[in-house]
Design a protein around this nucleic acid. Structure first.
Lengths: 214, 214
DNA sequence: TGGTTTTTTTACCGCTTGGTAAATTCAGAG
DNA sequence: CTCTGAATTTACCAAGCGGTAAAAAAACCA
C-alpha cells in the first residue's frame, strides 16, 4: 500500500522524493494561477491538473483535496506577504523605513500579482480558510508595527497620524495595482506606469509623513 | 403563450406589472448578497432563490440566466458608482472638491459594501462581464476628471502630482474598508473606526494636495 | 362569473464537479 | 534483472449545478 506523501499523521515524515517535490511544486504553481483568477469556488481541479500537466486523480494523490491545495498556498503566502513589514527597523530613520516599506510592498504587487489576488479573493469572501491566520500571524505584527510608528510620532520624527490606518492605506494603494490591474490598465496604459506609480506613492507618503518644517 | 417579462426583443416593452417589479427587485437584492460574498462562479441560483424567497425556476422566469442577473447588477452598479466623481465641480475650490470626493467614496464604502465587493470580484477576475463598461463608461469620466485636476495643478491651486494615480489611490484607500472589511475588523475593532478612517483620509489628502506655503 | 394571461410549482435533464477504487506503469535498490 | 514500493492512469461515482417543459395555480379583466 502506498504511503501518501502528503503526510500530517504522527508517523515518520520521511523526506519527499524528487518526484514528490517537483510535482507538488508543479501543482501549487498551477493552482496559484487558477485560484488567483477564478477564486476558490470558481477554480476546478481539472483546470489545475491541466495547468500542472498531470491528471486529476494524480493531483489528489499529492493533496487530500481542493481545500488542502488552497490552504497550502495561503500558508506559504502568509510568510512572504508579511516579510516586508517585518523588515521595518524600529531604530532606522522613520520616513526612510516607511518609504522603503511602501516600495517593497509595491514591488511585491508587481512581482507577485497572483499572490496578491489570491489573498484579495480570500479576504473578500470573509477569509473562511484563513481566519486564525489573521489573528495569530497578522495581528501581532501589525500591533507591534503600529506601536513603533506611534513611538516615532511621539518623538516628533513623523507628522502625527493614526498608525493602523496608515498601514491600511499603504496596503490598499500598493495592492491596488495588482488586484485591479485590469482597471488600471484601461485607464493608464503608459509604458512608464510602474515608475510613475512608485514616484506617486513616494510623494504621497513623504508629504503625509514629513514632520512639520519639512 | 406567456410573454417573458425580461424583454430585449424588438417587440413593445410593455410596462412591468407590480409583481414583476417586486420580484425582480427581490431577486437582484438577494443576488447582490450572494455574488458579493461568493463571486460569480461561487454563487448558485439556489442560494439566490432561497434568499429571494422564490423557487429556482421562478427566478429563471424573470431572468434568462445566472449571467443576466449578474450583468444587470453590474449595470445598475456602474451608475451609482461613478456618481461621486461626476459631482466633482471643475469650478469649485480644488482641495474642497477632492476632499468631498474622498468623503463621498468613503461613505459609499460604508453604505454599499456589497456593491463594492461585487465590483472588486468582477475586476479581480479580469472584468469578463464588464470589459466594455470600463472603456465606454469609466474611461471617459476618468480622463475628464484627470484633466480637471491637472488644470488645478497647473493653476497652482494644488500641489503637483499625477492625477490618474491620485484617483487610483482614492479608490484604493476608500474601497479598502469595504473590500477588506474582515481584515480591517481584526486589526481595528474600535467603535470609532469609521470616524477615524475619515479623519485619516482627510489628513492624508490634505497634506498631499495642499499647495506649498501650508 | 368565466375565460385569459401571468405567475408559480413539479418533475426533470444533461453536464460538471470533487473525489474514489483499483488496476497499471514506473523508478530505484539489491 | 528482479522485486517492491511509489507514481500514474482508467474507469467510475454521487452530488450539485444551470437550465427546461409542462402542468398547476393565481391574478386579472370582461
Amino acid at each position: 500500500m502506498a504511503q501518501r506523501p502528503t503526510s500530517e499523521d504522527a508517523a515518520p515524515p520521511a523526506k519527499p522524493s524528487r518526484i514528490q517535490t517537483r510535482n507538488r511544486a508543479l501543482i501549487l504553481e498551477a493552482a496559484l494561477d487558477v485560484f488567483a483568477q477564478e477564486g476558490y469556488r470558481g477554480a476546478t481541479l481539472d483546470q489545475i491538473a491541466t495547468g500542472a500537466g498531470l491528471s486529476k486523480p494524480n493531483i489528489l494523490y499529492y493533496f487530500n483535496g481542493k481545500e488542502e491545495i488552497h490552504v497550502t498556498l495561503l500558508n506559504q503566502l502568509m510568510d512572504r506577504w508579511l516579510d516586508p513589514m517585518r523588515q521595518i527597523d524600529p531604530h532606522g530613520v522613520p520616513l526612510d523605513e516607511l518609504l522603503r516599506y511602501v516600495a517593497r510592498k509595491l514591488q511585491m504587487s508587481r512581482e507577485y500579482p497572483r499572490e496578491s489576488r489570491l489573498f484579495a479573493n480570500e479576504i473578500l469572501q470573509g477569509a473562511p480558510r484563513m481566519g486564525p491566520h489573521l489573528e495569530t500571524g497578522l495581528k501581532p505584527l501589525v500591533d507591534r508595527t503600529a506601536a513603533v510608528i506611534q513611538g516615532w510620532i511621539d518623538a516628533g520624527q513623523l507628522a502625527p497620524t493614526e498608525p493602523r490606518h496608515l498601514i491600511f492605506s499603504i496596503w490598499a494603494t500598493t495592492q491596488h495595482y495588482a488586484d485591479f490591474e485590469v482597471q488600471v490598465s484601461v485607464l493608464d496604459n503608459s509604458p512608464t506606469r510602474d515608475a510613475t506609480a512608485e514616484a506617486f506613492l513616494c510623494t504621497l507618503y513623504t508629504r503625509m509623513l514629513s514632520p512639520e518644517g519639512h
